[in-house]
Nucleic acid binder design. Structure first.
Lengths: 110, 110
DNA sequence: GCTTATATATGGCATCGCCATATATGGGGA
DNA sequence: TCCCCATATATGGCGATGCCATATATAAGC
């Protein structure tokens, strides 16, 4: 549970980043985060879906249902123009934040 | 408000780090965080004092009152042996976490 | 005398991630 | 055949943690 509290706030940045180049659905995002972080990051679906609704309500992402035979329906999300701008800002902010923390606690990321 | 949400969870690491080499009192810690981060990080005292009580309750830090003439009383905190171990763990965890985030969102800290 | 900086304290609130649980479908193995 | 697992989305309630507002108290500076 150690680092779980840090995830607060980073979730939005993660989701926006993963949607940058292609639309994805919720379950896929959840699996991607876990896989790409080598298991370090893990988002429970109970956090993920409400987060996606929130981002959609803010118009940072847009979702649409895709139904295929022999498959549960999926909702695919894509970045909006607003979302793209927010992503850039959040990336910069994250970098600034991480460097500030690193500077004080004496951690280098190299 | 941009990065404020990220602070959740990093507060403990910051405090423990700042107490690593010398005892400090609450107000001092609050000012130090702001100064050393160039204003990027800022902890309101309303968050800070309850946090200090929590850390003391967990025996990660120990506080003692210091009264001097012509000065409001101050409570100085120092790291305990437990606190020192926790600090090491949290530092490692933070590094792992920041690298995982950086890897997914495409941010380098160099 | 008034404001500002120093210094600690606390009640109530908002945000956000988690647990538990629910629904629904397809595939693989015993 | 039957059950479990992976896939896929949904939601009520809870806990942790930081913030706002406010309070108290003292010394320094104008």
């Amino acid at each position: 549970m150690t680092g779980r509290a840090w995830q607060k706030g980073s979730a939005e940045l993660l989701i926006l980043s993963l949607l940058e180049h292609e639309p994805r659905h919720g379950y896929d995002l959840s699996k991607l985060i876990e896989a790409r972080s080598g298991g370090v990051l893990r988002f429970h679906v109970a956090s993920l879906y409400p987060l996606l609704y929130r981002l959609e309500r803010r118009r940072w992402i847009g979702g649409r249902w895709v139904e295929k035979a022999g498959q549960r329906r999926r909702r695919y999300y894509r970045l909006t123009a607003d979302g793209r701008r927010v992503l850039e800002t959040k990336r910069r902010d994250w970098r600034t934040f991480a460097q500030a923390i690193g500077g004080i606690v004496g951690v280098e990321y190299a």
